[in-house]
Amino acid sequence: MSSREGGKKKPLKQPKKEQKEMDDDDLAHKQKLKEQQKALQEAKARASQKGPMVGGGIKKSGKK
């Protein structure tokens, strides 16, 4: 089966997606997600300022 078609085939072009209109519920939901993401970033920043959490876990004695 020898064919002269070599290399990678190009994918078929997909039709462009239409911009769907957003209603008030969609806008409110996006705003809520942005606020949650922002709060999460602030919490991560505050946690990293305090330093790593160490000292927990099982403590081993030096005896064998």
Results as ranks from 00 to 15, higher is better:
Gly55Ile: 04
Lys32Tyr: 10
Pro52Gln: 01
Lys9Met: 15
Pro11Ser: 04
Ala43Pro: 00
Lys20Arg: 10
Lys59Tyr: 09
Pro15Phe: 04
Pro15Ser: 07
Ala47Pro: 00
Ala39Trp: 03
Pro11Val: 02
Asp26Cys: 05
Gly56Ser: 06
Ala43Cys: 06
Met1Asn: 13
Lys34His: 15
Ser48Arg: 07
Asp23Tyr: 06
Lys17Pro: 00
Leu27Ala: 08
Ser3Phe: 15
Asp24Gln: 14
Asp24Ile: 08
Arg4Val: 07
Gly56Gln: 02
Lys44Phe: 03
Arg4Lys: 11
Lys44Arg: 14
Lys17Ser: 05
Gln19Ser: 09
Gly6Phe: 15
Leu12Trp: 13
Arg46Gly: 02
Gly57Thr: 03
His29Gln: 07
Gly51Phe: 01
Lys44Tyr: 00
Pro15Val: 14
Ala45Tyr: 01
Gln49Trp: 00
Gly7Tyr: 04
Asp25Lys: 15
Gly62Met: 04
Lys32Pro: 01
Gly51Ile: 00
Lys38Ser: 09
Met1Gln: 07
Glu5Gly: 06
Gly7Met: 12
Lys13Phe: 10
Ala28His: 12
Ser2Gly: 08
Gln41His: 07
Lys32Gly: 13
Gly55Pro: 01
Leu27Arg: 14
Asp23Pro: 01
Gln41Ser: 04
Lys59His: 14
Lys8Tyr: 15
Lys50Arg: 05
Lys34Gln: 13
Gly62Ile: 08
Arg46Lys: 12
Lys59Arg: 09
Met1Ile: 12
Gln37Cys: 12
Glu18Ala: 15
Lys8Val: 11
Met53Gln: 05
Lys32Met: 10
Met1Lys: 09
Ala43Ser: 13
Lys44Thr: 01
Lys10Leu: 06
Gly51Pro: 02
Arg46Asp: 02
Ala45Met: 04
Glu21His: 10
Gly51His: 02
Gly57Val: 02
Pro15Tyr: 05
Ala43Gln: 05
Pro52Asn: 06
Pro11Gly: 04
Ser48His: 05
Lys16Val: 06
Lys60Asn: 06
Gln37Pro: 00
Lys63His: 06
Glu18Gln: 08
Ala43Met: 03
Leu40Cys: 02
Glu18Asp: 11
Glu18Thr: 03
Lys16Ser: 07
Glu35Lys: 10
Arg4Gln: 14
Lys10Gly: 04
Leu12His: 14
Pro52Ile: 01
Gln49Tyr: 03
Lys63Gln: 06
Ser48Phe: 01
Ala28Leu: 14
Lys50Thr: 03
Ser3Tyr: 11
Gln36Lys: 08
Lys30Gln: 13
Arg4Asp: 15
Gly6Leu: 11
Glu18Leu: 15
Ser2Gln: 14
Gly57Gln: 01
Gln36His: 08
Lys44Leu: 03
Ile58Pro: 00
Lys64Cys: 07
Ser3Lys: 12
Gly7Val: 02
Gly7Pro: 02
His29Arg: 13
Leu12Asp: 09
Lys17Gly: 05
Gly51Arg: 03
Pro15Gln: 09
Leu27Tyr: 11
Gly55Lys: 00
Arg4Ile: 10
Glu35Arg: 10
Asp24Lys: 10
Ala47Trp: 01
Glu21Phe: 07
Lys64Leu: 08
Gln37Asn: 13
Leu33Glu: 12
Pro52Ser: 00
Lys8Leu: 11
Lys10Asn: 08
Gln31Pro: 04
Gln31His: 07
Leu33Lys: 12
Glu21Met: 09
Met1Phe: 14
Gly57Pro: 02
Gln37Lys: 13
Gly6Thr: 04
Lys30Glu: 15
Gly57Ile: 00
